[in-house]
Design a protein around this nucleic acid. Structure first.
Length: 552
DNA sequence: CTAGGGTTAG
């Protein structure tokens, strides 16, 4: 690089814009314009000297791919001392709109609030499209209250505004509110379109809200919205998540439009969640016959199916299919591990998570430690990963290690996601959290739980307390377990529905071993079919056994 | 000179 003095003297000689441009050309042709210091010095002179030209400096700045802070400063300094220190370009509603879209993608909440105030200042508050974008950004950045406020204050709305609010609620884990708003929309005389029903169906899927889901499905058919694949996919997903795989399959076969990869995937996932691994694999073949090429997500769904159905061999051959060559180590677990290690791509977080899950089932501490180390390396902040490892330790009574995991969670600011369960009774969704006492019929629920406990004891059941996270006294453990949200939901189902009605419960986390055992007992003692959808799959309890065959 | 921008399944 030419000496500093040389550049300085060249800069000094720039007494006109022409000279400046000559210098710029020189810097570029001698490959010195890339050099930060000379570029910034040049920019600065151009922006502030009488010979320079502020807008020319700005033009140069825009052309720099990643301007340094000093580059920005040079132009800002020029702007600050120019006759018009405000931004020379006026922004309009579209400018705001694009900026907001950027915020949505970058999940930049505070930037969105800034644009929000600009937009009010410029008087764009009657622009429905713009406010819809704003609402959507707030929802996507996680501030549903702010989104709702925008929605409520809109002087008038169109269907997209409703859609944005409904899907915002559905995707922001407020599915109940999403369904309520969907109903309100219909009450106010709006005609939901395909986008609206997608949001509402997603909410039903999350809640296991079959009654609402069926109404929406009927509406889709009536209004011919089922000519849209995306809607069909959402309907299939809704039935499958509500536990009606057969119904999901019926919809699948009767899809009149062209099926997409996602249609197949949703259906395979439905079989997987119900532990029907064979059907899922059969489907993989059918799909090939149909000329649809599976993608990575689909293989993952199929692997999931093998995992849930305990189809280890099939799972391994699927891995082989995926990477196109066979690996044959001896031990089952190490085999899975080797396959994951030898994969050409970086192993996926989900694969390590499933390995960790398998370690829990088989009590393999060493491998669990290895898998969770990998997950931490990959920057996992999912509390589920930590809880799984913790459970592996707890099962071995290694309380010190359980404590270490908790410490690690604190340091990494991983919070345990609170468990909750939903159950739909006569179209009304009831939500329970662990130890919940807020339900109007709370007394009845706890009385029923006592009864269950008493009757189960006579059947020889003892709580599996070694799987609770905390190292607390036996009796306390017993209490913590007794009031898990899924137990509360099942108890409420027992007291508020007739004997033949199956009880459906949706849980946001994985079901714990004790709840699993208790619900098996309940299905036997009370002769009730109980279906629990947990984070990973469905458990169908009937006559004392579960469809997962205790493998999950 | 105008139009241009928003909501969508696994």
């Amino acid at each position: 690089m030419a000496s500093q003095c040389q550049l300085d003297s060249l800069l000094q000689k720039c007494t006109s814009l022409i000279r400046m441009k000559q210098l710029q050309a020189h810097l570029i042709t001698t490959d010195k314009f890339q050099f930060h210091l000379s570029r910034t010095k040049f920019l600065e002179l151009c922006a502030i000297s009488l010979a320079g030209d502020l807008s020319f400096a700005a033009q140069i700045l825009w052309r720099i791919e990643t301007p340094s802070t000093n580059d920005w400063n040079a132009v800002l300094r020029g702007l600050a001392q120019s006759p018009e220190p405000t931004h020379p370009q006026k922004l309009d509603a579209l400018t705001c709109s694009f900026a907001l879209k950027g915020c949505a993608r970058a999940l930049a909440f505070s930037e969105a609030t800034q644009i929000h105030s600009q937009l009010l200042r410029f008087g764009f508050e009657a622009d429905i499209l713009l406010l819809t974008t704003l609402l959507d950004v707030y929802a996507k950045t996680g501030d549903l209250d702010a989104a709702q406020k925008v929605f409520d204050n809109m002087c008038n709305r169109d269907i997209a505004s409703w859609n944005a609010m409904i899907s915002g609620l559905a995707q922001g884990s407020h599915p109940n509110e999403a369904i309520a708003l969907f109903n309100r929309m219909k009450d106010e005389g709006w005609r939901p379109n395909e986008v609206t029903v997608l949001g509402a169906l997603s909410a039903c899927s999350q809640l296991g809200a079959l009654k609402h889901g069926q109404i929406i499905h009927a509406y889709d058919v009536d209004k011919k919205l089922d000519t849209n694949v995306i809607v069909c996919n959402a309907v299939i997903d809704m039935y499958s998540k509500c536990g009606l795989v057969d119904k999901a399959y019926l919809v699948f076969v009767s899809v009149s439009c062209n099926k997409s990869l996602i249609t197949w995937n949703t259906m395979i996932m439905a079989f997987a969640m119900n532990g029907d691994g064979c059907k899922a694999l059969e489907f993989l073949d059918q799909m090939a016959l149909d000329g649809v090429n599976p993608d990575a997500v689909l293989y993952l769904a199929a692997l999931c199916a093998c995992n849930h159905a305990g189809l280890v061999e099939e799972g391994v051959s699927l891995f082989d299919m995926m990477k196109g060559c066979g690996v044959k180590p001896n031990d089952k677990h190490y085999r899975t591990c080797d396959i994951i290690n030898s994969m050409s791509m970086v192993p996926d977080v989900v694969l390590w998570q499933s390995l960790l899950g398998a370690c829990k089932t088989h009590g393999n501490v060493e491998m669990a430690e290895m898998a969770s180390r990998k997950l931490v390396e990959m920057g996992s902040h999912s509390s589920g990963d930590f809880v799984l490892l913790s459970n592996v330790y707890a099962a071995q009574l290694r309380w010190h290690d359980v404590g270490r995991v908790r410490e690690a969670m604190k340091i990494r600011d991983v919070r345990k996601v609170p468990g909750f369960s939903y159950t739909e009774i006569d179209g009304k969704i009831h939500k329970f959290v662990n130890g919940d006492q807020s339900h109007p019929n709370s007394k009845g629920i706890y009385a029923k739980l006592d009864e269950i406990k008493f009757r189960a004891k006579t059947y020889g059941y003892a709580a599996e307390t070694n799987l609770v996270l905390h190292d607390i006294g036996e009796e306390d453990k017993d209490n913590v377990l007794n009031y898990h949200s899924e137990k509360l939901a099942v108890a409420y189902g027992l007291i508020s529905t007739s004997d033949e009605t199956p009880i459906q419960v949706i849980k946001n986390l994985r079901i714990c071993v004790d709840c699993h055992a208790v619900i098996k007992n309940i299905s036997n003692i009370y002769n009730r079919e109980i279906i629990v959808r947990d984070r990973a799959r469905f458990h169908r309890f009937k006559e004392g056994v579960c469809s997962c065959r205790d493998y999950w």
